[in-house]
């Protein structure tokens, strides 16, 4: 169950989106979140949705995954939308007014736009995580952080830490499962009682998990040293990323999208 939350996210595939350079995907996803704020009328949102849906179509991933991506956040989204509707500056026809609460035409429209923004951001970031293995993402982060080497930021070390952390997630999940079973056998009841009782049940889980993680870390450090690890400098890289034509095309598509958005914002 826990495995699904983090690791079941990547859906192996061979689409154009899957084959894109993770750096391009990561940067363009962030860029997309930025340009969403250019949109301010229905035409711009229609364009953004069309673009996102096209990207999803190209990835070949089932629609249901994206709907499921929105589900856990739906209450947060609705809460934000309702705040926006009730408390935003009034404009247009006012339908309802009571103290500081106002429901106006402008408020409702803003609410719908906010909802669209959330959905677009979630769709795009879900697309990123569904089509990119975590390891490639960590490689992309390493490349993107590279300029920070100028200020002596330990980029290689951070990247190695990230990839080791990713590598140990399933190992620690298994370990947690084992400890949970061991504690269950001794009569601990997980997921029963009120919130304080449930929190207390976590303690006999966390302590052994911490102890074993430290032991693992020590073993791993010894093994790394025995295999000649002396820090990031002077290491060569086995895995490299290649920027290809399709990544340039994708970047161009985003540039065109930006121009179109600005155009629609100004003239519609």
């Amino acid at each position: 169950m826990m495995n699904k939350l983090i690791f079941g996210r990547y859906i192996p595939g061979d689409s154009v989106i899957h084959r894109m350079d993770p750096r391009a995907k990561l940067l363009l996803s962030f860029y997309f979140i930025g340009i969403i704020f250019i949109a301010n009328n229905w035409a711009t949102y229609v364009l953004l949705f069309a673009f996102t849906l096209l990207a999803i179509k190209l990835s070949g991933v089932k629609w249901s995954f994206f709907i499921n991506g929105v589900k856990p956040l739906i209450w947060l989204i609705l809460f934000t939308v309702i705040l926006q509707v009730l408390f935003s500056a009034s404009g247009g026809t006012v339908y309802f007014k009571w103290g500081i609460i106002t429901i106006s035409q402008l408020g409702l429209v803003n609410g719908v736009y906010i909802f669209c923004r959330f959905v677009l951001i979630i769709f795009m970031s879900t697309l990123l995580t569904l089509t990119t293995p975590p390891l490639e993402l960590s490689d992309a982060i390493e490349y993107i952080l590279m300029p920070l080497k100028v200020v002596h930021f330990p980029v290689y070390e951070v990247a190695l830490m990230l990839s080791i952390a990713l590598r140990f997630v399933p190992t620690l999940m298994d370990e947690t499962e084992k400890i949970m079973n061991a504690q269950r056998a001794r009569g601990v009841d997980f997921g029963e009682g009120n919130i304080f009782q449930q929190m207390r049940a976590i303690v006999p889980l966390l302590i052994p998990l911490f102890v074993s993680s430290f032991n693992r870390a020590e073993d791993l450090a010894t093994a790394m040293e025995a295999r000649g690890y002396q820090g990031g400098e002077g290491r060569s890289k086995y895995r490299i990323l290649k920027w290809q034509a399709r990544d340039t095309w994708a970047t161009l598509a985003f540039a065109v999208l930006t121009v179109a958005l600005v155009g629609l914002r100004l003239y519609v």
Binding site: S138, S163, I164, R167, R216, D219, L220, A223, A226, R227
Partner: peptide, 12 residues
């Protein structure tokens, strides 16, 4: 070393 998991550094 002894523990197969604790000496596996690479992600693949």
């Amino acid at each position: 070393f002894q523990n197969p998991d604790n000496q596996f550094v690479g992600a693949t």
